[in-house]
Design a protein around this nucleic acid. Structure first.
Lengths: 338, 338
DNA sequence: AGCCAAACTTGAAACCTTTCAATCACGACA
DNA sequence: TGTCGTGATTGAAAGGTTTCAAGTTTGGCT
């Protein structure tokens, strides 16, 4: 059934080595022989066995990206950047979705290592996971995407979340808001902590105390949690209620926005909203959301470049790259007069 | 550097075969030997080489899903269903994103065949692509997801799009709308054709002529195209303008909704909107969208089950499974009086 | 015709694992 | 003590490819 190089060799009347050369070093083979061998290959429907090739070569020509949450548009854009860069090389990219679960992440990482993939990109559930060190220690290059690690044992790319938080808060303060809600959680997520910290920094710089920021904790960064947060926020007596909300990501902001509209709270007049990530749905919302944009594609592209370098540059040095976020102002924080 | 079974065997003072047995047939090995070998494995950091295993076994224990568009939430939900089912077995799942491009789809399929994956799920750009036949003809099982094929040479799962189109249109007709726009394209996509056809069927059943349906063609099924469609729709003089729009998917509907809100057109009062797919963002929109829901997870689960059957059931028979869609009514088509 | 270099082709070894028939060790039983 | 059976272990072969040193052919030149 399965036809291998040997069958091709026999059918074309050449040796195994020649068939292999047609595949891997076409220049070493005379045009006539090559044509004949290629003809036979397509006649017989030959499909090279990548396992055998890998076994010989020691490594495969495949990269993998272990995504934290494939349904979050933020990550699909990062993936797009990765794919774009990888596609230019003669490599393929497989994607694995850990879905925020440590066990699945580990299962995938193990499988990938067993497959001897050329390298792995990963947005880990826990950036300090020891598994990552073990694997790269054994020789599989790993690049960490969108997370920062305490020890610099890998390449990584990330965005400055403290700065992002600061940008969001400064924007709201500039607009004259004095009472702001920070909506996000759980704080085990580094991103959430950093964005919150950035808001506090901005407050401090403005000479305002921390009291001006009301923290509303959420169980996750989802639309549903955004709706729940809205209920808690709107439950506050209108006198003391914040006039603006900064959400740790756009999904929360979308949920918040929806619940506000449903409750007759006008956005931005009664409540200004800032999101984070600037996913496509943020700009496309009925009240387009102001959001902090991260260079998502660029994140993916850079991560892939670092990995490619680590894969085939013998004197590669680990790098930690941090990008700068940017505020995109839209209707959800438009000035009241407008 | 790399430690293999041989190194383990030497270090543990046993033969190659015994090490292999510890891995694959633990019951054949005495408890004492097994413990010793396992100890050595973890001491030395042994990671089995999957390529070599595969080479011997002939097939890998990996499945793959070639997704049409990883950034469309519809497909991420289908993937979730697939993953769920696959995770129950001792198999892993890789995802590939063809991004609607035939060349990438083919590149991935080729790679997967070379890797000798156990089976492939695919939502193809062109359901009648010949590549699919070639590959399954050579022995790699393929299941087609969310598309229908003219010839029944593979298993496939899909949703009845003609019925979905009919449900949407009947809903609008029930609400008293007489002039409706169908927004979607390009019509090279079978789904778009079917959903349009379903609307026509509903019209006919209601005894109305095709004139009651204005078709607005789009270049793709994206939010941006939805906005463009809105401009064309709103350009029609208010006398002749449709009072409702049925969009071929939710992304179009979201774009349409946004542009309407921005232009001061009230939804649903001035224009009722029905989307398709019922992605999470549809229900979470500022004016929650009425949409036609497809059993996305179920689609994924069923596809995976069919594939698993084809993989390890010798007398597997191809099946074409069609699911039934369901209308979810929300605010975007609420009755005017409400 | 004879020689040489260059171009091409060959065959065997190596990659790492699994399988399976064959061997071994051990205790039980006669 | 010798034999048998059982469970544990072994060693060699196989799986499909690539590599590389060694061998062969080709064509040009004198």
């Amino acid at each position: 059934m399965a036809v291998g190089v040997k069958d091709i060799a026999v059918a074309a009347g050449v040796s195994l080595g020649t068939v292999s050369n047609v595949l891997n070093h076409p220049d070493r083979v005379s045009a006539r022989t090559r044509a004949r061998v290629e003809q036979v290959m397509s006649d017989l429907g030959f499909v090279p066995n990548e396992s055998a090739r890998q076994l010989r070569a020691g490594r495969s020509r495949t990269l993998a990206y272990v995504v934290l949450d494939a349904s979050n548009p933020f990550f699909t854009d990062v993936s797009r950047g990765v794919e774009e860069t990888v596609a230019e090389k003669d490599l393929s990219l497989f994607m694995c979705n850990s879905d925020n679960r440590v066990d699945r992440e580990n299962a995938y990482l193990t499988r990938l290592e067993e497959q001897r993939v050329a390298g792995v990109l990963v947005t880990p559930v826990d950036p300090d996971s020891q598994t990552l060190d073990l694997i790269s220690g054994r020789g599989t290059p790993i690049v960490i995407v969108d997370r920062i690690r305490s020890r610099e044992t890998h390449c990584s790319v990330a965005v400055d979340d403290v700065l992002g938080g600061r940008l969001a808060m400064e924007h709201l303060l500039d607009l004259g808001h004095q009472r702001v809600a920070f909506i996000g959680g759980p704080s085990s997520i580094g991103q959430v902590r950093d964005r919150h910290q950035g808001s506090l920094d901005a407050l401090e710089d403005a000479g305002l105390s921390e009291d001006h920021l009301t923290r509303i904790d959420t169980a996750s960064l989802s639309i549903g949690e955004g709706r729940l947060a809205a209920e808690r926020l709107l439950g506050i007596s209108s006198k003391r209620r914040p006039t603006a909300a900064f959400c740790a990501n756009d999904l929360l902001a979308l949920g918040l926005l929806q619940q506000c509209v449903a409750s007759g709270v006008r956005v931005p007049d009664d409540l200004a909203i800032v999101g984070y990530d600037d996913i496509e749905y943020a700009g496309a919302a009925a009240v387009p959301l102001t959001s902090v944009r991260q260079p998502r594609m660029r994140l993916g592209r850079t991560a892939a470049e670092l990995l490619l370098d680590e894969v085939d540059n013998p004197d590669h040095a680990h790098q930690q790259i941090t990008f700068t976020p940017e505020l995109v102002a839209r209707a959800s924080t438009a000035t009241r007069s407008a």
